[in-house]
Amino acid sequence: MICPYIINISVFLGGILSWGLMWPLIDTKRGDWYPADLKPGSLHGLQGYKVFIATALILGDGLYNFKVLSRTLAALFFQLRGRDATGALPIADRSSPKTSRISYDEQRRTQLFLIDQIPTWFAVAGYVAIAAISTATVPRIFPELKWYYILVIYIFAPALAFSNAYGCGLTDWSLAYSYGTLAIFAIGAWAGASHGGVLAGLAACGVMMNIVSTASDLSQDFKTGYLTLSSPRSMFVSQLIGTAMGCIISPCVFWLFFKAFKDLGTPGCQYPAPYATVFRNMAILGVEGFSSLP
């Protein structure tokens, strides 16, 4: 109901192609492409093909559209520089069939949404400030995660955040965990097993997931604000308030569960936390090096 038909059809055909054709064919290579005695959830076998192929497709699609957007912005910049002396854009005085078909409601939404924009300098300064705070504080919490690891994450995160926001806008799915796996393998392999690579990879995954998931969440908030004629700044301030509340509430909730259930995260308990096992196995696989990947 939310996504375009082409997206739903694409996801549907992808499900048929992967689960109906690719995974059964790869499963027949058990003992040839990968050991036959692996557990079903091991990333050395069929599960590894599922995870890495999906991550590669998502990242490739997002980075391609990031390239298209960068070229579009560059073309727009040169067009603005070459406008005439009157200060009007070359197409400002022209009417086109496309613009004439835009309804009054859409024109009004766009007008209100663009009036109350967040300054670019504020966004850049805020990102730099948050990166500096994270670089200084997170290594004190996780000593294995060095400050230069976090700096590298914040340098590459904007491109991944755009990819996640773009994909979430198309499919209404935030795939932050897929980008978190990239941080697990990159930082885990960089740190190495002898320097706490498993814990460093998991902590780096948390940092990366927070960045890319916030980008998609904020984009969805802006989308809601656009549809409801709300101020983008009010949506942004609401996001800041919610994030600040989460910084206090989330640790309290975790500490409550941690104290109330002594076997929290243990397989077979009331709260087994299955994703914790999956991400831990990814971190272990990352520090073993690329030779162990499927």
Rank of each mutant, 00 (worst) to 15 (best):
G289K: 12
D116S: 10
G268F: 10
G188T: 09
K29W: 15
T243L: 15
Q117V: 13
S96W: 12
S250W: 07
P90C: 09
S174V: 05
F142A: 13
C252M: 13
F261H: 04
N210W: 00
P232M: 02
K29T: 15
V138K: 08
T243P: 07
L21W: 09
I53D: 00
L160K: 05
L160D: 04
R108S: 13
I130G: 01
Y179Q: 14
I53C: 06
R140Q: 02
G126A: 10
I2C: 03
D221H: 09
P24S: 02
A191Y: 02
G15S: 02
G196C: 07
R140C: 01
A85L: 06
F12H: 05
C3Y: 02
S250R: 07
G242W: 02
A159W: 10
S213W: 00
L199I: 13
V152S: 13
G242P: 01
G15N: 03
P274M: 06
D105N: 08
R109D: 04
R71M: 08
G87Q: 12
W173V: 05
V253N: 03
G225D: 13
C247A: 14
M245H: 05
P274S: 11
G169W: 01
G82E: 12
I248G: 05
A123G: 09
L229C: 05
V68N: 03
A191S: 14
R233M: 12
Y64W: 11
Y34L: 08
E106W: 06
S230T: 11
Y104F: 10
F113M: 10
K262S: 01
A132E: 07
G265P: 03
A54V: 14
C205M: 10
A85C: 04
G169P: 02
A136S: 01
T214D: 06
Q220K: 08
S134Y: 03
T72F: 05
D263N: 15
A189H: 08
L151T: 02
P119S: 10
W33A: 14
A75L: 11
C269S: 15
D84P: 02
D32L: 12
V68S: 07
P294E: 14
G242D: 00
D61E: 05
G126Y: 11
P97D: 10
S292E: 14
V212P: 04
R233K: 13
Y127I: 08
V237H: 09
A85N: 06
W33V: 06
G45W: 06
N164C: 15
D27P: 01
F156I: 06
D105E: 14
D217H: 03
K39C: 04
S42Y: 01
K29Y: 15
R94V: 02
Y149M: 09
L13V: 14
L46Q: 10
T72G: 05
I115G: 06
G242V: 00
A74Y: 12
L114K: 00
Q47S: 15
I187E: 01
T28S: 14
S194W: 07
N210S: 11
T214H: 05
I58R: 12
Q47V: 01
S103C: 03
K223N: 04
L240D: 00
G192W: 04
V51L: 03
T110K: 03
Y148C: 00
A186S: 10
L229M: 12
L63G: 01
F185I: 08
G286N: 05
F185S: 08
W173Q: 14
S230L: 11
A136E: 07
Y64A: 06
G192S: 07
A85G: 05
R108E: 11
R94E: 12
A273D: 13
G268Y: 10
